[in-house]
Amino acid sequence: MNFDDVDSIVRTALQAMRQGRIGFSVQQVNCVNEHHEVFYSECLARLEKLDGTVITAGEFLPALEASGHAPELDCHMLNLAFEWLSNSASGPLGCNVSSSNFSSRERRTMLFDQLHRNRSLAPRLVLEITESAPIIQQFGVAEFIQDIRKLGYRIAIDDFGTGFSSPETIFSMAVDIIKIGAFFAQLSRRSEADRLLHHMVGLASCVAPTIVVEGIETYEQLTLARTAGATHVQGYLLSEPTLCPIFRGLGYPAVMDSTVRPGLKPIRFGKLSA
């Protein structure tokens, strides 16, 4: 991706935020044993282009991170999540928060103020820290995360074992949830997957009580996660998110049922295929 590409994608994404064309779909995090039990539903960013095409966060988030604009998307998505939770009795949501929010005191203050204003909804929101940079090297991050947890939010480390995630990272701070990257469940060689996933779950269990294995797409992978000792799983086998956003804010049109308020569609928490 060259500079011109990044600049174009960033301008498109920032304009879409201003115009209410970035919303979210959801993917459930399910109990590894009782598949119908939903721990929470992760908000997945979706951008609707001017021509009506919908694209996933994977197509625009890297450019935002590279240009330093990821915190603006986080702020937007958190506002949508808080708006949803304020107007819905459905279960908890999870929302990604880029580690670039921790890179300066100013950014930490802006994030904390937003979370503090909405602290009444804290028990219903999981903050998933995505590591676009090594957070262990950023001064005061562990203390800052503790301050957020004191507001009542649960903290998850996303994609543990891949990218910048490391044992040093998770042992440096108190968190509630560790999400193990899909790579470990999707290894092509079963014996290798068994060994590595057991190791990762065992390590993560030393830090957090809740261990989620991501990328579960087959029953074999589900069994692998259960055998390794994971408490929860996430993936297309049990919950397949829609491409189109189910929520873009009450001030904008969205996919909706006739029985709900304009712009608000209930998240389904019914029994899933086992």
Results as ranks from 00 to 15, higher is better:
D4S: 15
I177A: 09
H116D: 12
P62A: 13
G94M: 05
N30F: 01
M256I: 10
T53A: 14
K49E: 09
R107Q: 15
H232G: 00
G181L: 02
A45M: 05
T169E: 04
T223V: 09
L196P: 01
I170T: 08
A225M: 04
Q221A: 13
L196Y: 07
I136T: 14
L85P: 09
I145C: 14
G20V: 14
I136V: 15
L151H: 10
G20N: 14
F112W: 07
N33P: 00
E34F: 11
V126Q: 06
L47H: 09
A122D: 08
L127Q: 05
K150C: 07
V97P: 06
I55N: 03
P241I: 00
I216Q: 07
R124Q: 15
G68C: 00
D159W: 03
I216S: 08
P71Q: 08
R105S: 11
S166C: 01
G58Y: 00
L125G: 05
A225G: 04
L125R: 13
R119I: 05
N118T: 01
F82A: 12
I155S: 07
D113I: 11
A225W: 11
F184N: 14
W84A: 12
D7T: 12
I22M: 10
T259V: 00
P62T: 10
R149I: 01
F3Y: 09
L47R: 05
R46I: 00
F269L: 10
G181D: 15
I267Y: 05
V260R: 15
L125P: 08
H69Q: 14
P92W: 04
L250W: 02
G229Y: 08
S205G: 04
D147F: 00
V207R: 08
T169Q: 13
D176H: 04
D7L: 10
Q146K: 11
A228M: 07
V54E: 03
T231D: 06
D176W: 02
G202Y: 01
E214Y: 07
G161S: 03
S205Y: 02
A182S: 13
F247N: 02
F24I: 02
Q146T: 12
N79G: 15
